[in-house]
């Protein structure tokens, strides 16, 4: 690990200002992704700003009847919150499908959104990777690509976003609240938060330099049946091959978001509109324009079958 200096932040705005002021600074909260990457010298921050002391670990009810989830609320606490379990079951289910008990006890809400979009070639520092070293090339293209993206990929990167939580946040129309180094705040709709790789795969979110997430808000509950179905190589503690998150209403309308298929969770407005017509119609819209490799072409029929199973479960 490269050496770094360390400070504890005293307010969100001061943390953002310090990050903008200090060359090579990064925030650290749970640290479960950042420290893993620092040990491999894939991440090499010169300065760490520890934000764990900031009082951003509460889940509050909003005036609109939704929830405001502090940036530092741990994954375990968010999944176990009685309001989340009752009204946003998809979010609890997605969180509980991710990582291990130990990691969920540390990992935070904002940190989960900010974990790197990554693939095995990103981890292998002997291989070219446009995300790790912009302009060096992509070893995954033409390499072993079973886990990789089938939608929204580019000539520069075919990695997938690993977060289960983010799939649920997209389905729930969450909003990311931030503070910028000049002290101003803004709200970013979650659908606009993560980016497709394009020719700058190293830029993964809409955040500007130093911008700090303070909370994630959820609109008031929409009801319906919430199901998160993750398909993976092991029964527990593994990334998704694909995942399907749905909210289905009694009349068959609803929302659907896919994980494990692209550089960000995948939601298509036209696909939601097809929900009453069933899995085949929805999948056609969701996977429109898909460009699988020979090794991950199995993901396309897997999406349709999984969605079919999920919709049958929702009806029963």
């Amino acid at each position: 690990m490269k050496s770094f200096t360390y400070e504890r932040a005293h307010s969100p705005a001061a943390a953002a200002a310090a990050a903008a002021r200090t060359q090579g600074a990064k925030f650290i909260a749970g640290g479960t992704n950042l420290l893993d990457l620092m040990k491999l010298e894939i991440e090499t921050p010169a300065h760490l700003i520890d934000v764990n002391g900031l009082a951003l670990d509460k889940i509050e009810t909003t005036a609109e009847g939704g929830l405001r989830i502090g940036a530092l609320v741990r994954n375990t606490d968010l999944a176990a919150d009685a309001r989340v379990r009752r009204d946003y079951g998809l979010l609890s289910r997605a969180l509980l499908a991710g990582a291990s008990g130990q990691l969920r006890n540390k990992a935070t809400t904002a940190g989960n959104l900010l974990q790197r979009t990554r693939c095995p070639y990103f981890y292998d520092t002997n291989q070219p990777c446009n995300k790790r070293q912009p302009g060096s090339g992509c070893a995954a293209i033409g390499g072993f690509s079973r886990q990789h993206a089938v939608l929204g990929a580019s000539e520069a990167c075919i990695a997938t976003h690993p977060s289960d939580m983010a799939v649920a946040m997209i389905a729930l129309d969450a909003t990311v609240e931030t503070v910028r180094p000049d002290g101003t705040t803004r709200s970013i709709p979650i659908a606009a938060f993560h980016r497709l790789p394009g020719d700058t795969p190293q830029v993964e979110t809409a955040l500007s330099p130093g911008e700090f997430i303070t909370a994630v808000t959820l609109p008031k509950p929409v009801g319906g049946t919430h199901i998160y179905h993750k398909v993976r190589d092991r029964a527990s503690y593994a990334f998704a091959l694909i995942s399907v998150g749905v909210i289905v209403q009694r009349d068959g309308t609803g929302r659907v978001v896919l994980g494990g298929v692209a550089h960000k969770p995948w939601r298509v407005a036209g696909a939601d509109a097809e929900m009453p017509r069933g899995a085949k119609a929805v999948t056609e819209r969701l996977l429109s324009g898909a460009k699988p490799t020979r090794e991950n072409a199995f993901k396309l029929p897997l999406v349709e079958r999984t969605l079919g199973a999920v919709l049958r479960q929702a009806r029963s």
Partner: peptide, 21 residues
């Protein structure tokens, strides 16, 4: 999970956290 310890009543991976935190 070999490094699991209990911090403030919660199990965590002690390898993925800095002592100064």
């Amino acid at each position: 999970g070999a490094c699991t310890v209990i911090v403030e009543g919660r199990r965590i991976n002690s390898c993925l956290t800095l002592a100064v935190m």
